[in-house]
Design a protein around this nucleic acid. Structure first.
Length: 156
DNA sequence: GCCAACGTTGGC
DNA sequence: GCCAACGTTGGC
């Protein structure tokens, strides 16, 4: 019984963690997500093998820089328990962890970054509900439909 | 660096 | 449960 492969988009600031960094290390825990909606997508929605669009945010130009694969089920984000970490959460306990992460494996870097500005031009095809281009949306982990996945990668 | 939009916190 | 204040995100 295996569910169909799902697709996601995950944002990272390249100064902090970039597609090139992921290419070097191969697989990396995607820690530090501190938003409940994003957490729920990771914890409840992601399965090993799902596709990930690696998005570079807060840079010039922002856009999709690569493709990765979900490489684990979600598990408690260890940084929430680490007092030395900027992601430390004093309200989290091992008995009741608040934050979860998956491991993400490098797949490939795109031949070019697909800029957000260009993605916006396909708003009609991507749909009003696509969180990446929804006005004011800051969601850092968001679902991508199979059709959106195909469309976005066709822009490469 | 600016700032709009958003999510979270905490007083009441 | 309301909502003002605050901190953060992330495009520009």
């Amino acid at each position: 019984m295996s569910a169909r492969r799902r697709y996601w988009l995950m944002k990272s600031e390249p100064d902090c963690f970039s597609i090139d960094h992921l290419a070097q290390v191969g697989t990396e825990p995607w820690t530090g997500v501190r938003n409940y909606q994003a957490r729920n997508f990771m914890r409840n929605g992601m399965r090993s093998g799902d596709g990930v669009l690696f998005y570079h945010s807060n840079c010039t130009p922002p856009g999709i820089a690569g493709v990765a694969t979900v490489a684990s089920e979600a598990y408690p984000d260890p940084t929430q328990f680490d007092r030395a970490s900027p992601y430390f959460d004093p309200k989290a306990t091992h008995e009741e962890p608040r934050w979860f992460n998956v491991d993400v494996r490098f797949e490939r870097k795109l031949s070019r970054t697909i800029p957000l500005e260009e993605i916006r031009r396909h708003a009609d095809d991507l749909g009003d509900e696509f969180a990446l281009i929804k006005r004011g949306s800051r969601l850092s982990v968001l679902p991508v439909s199979a059709a959106q996945w195909a469309l976005l990668l066709s822009l490469e």
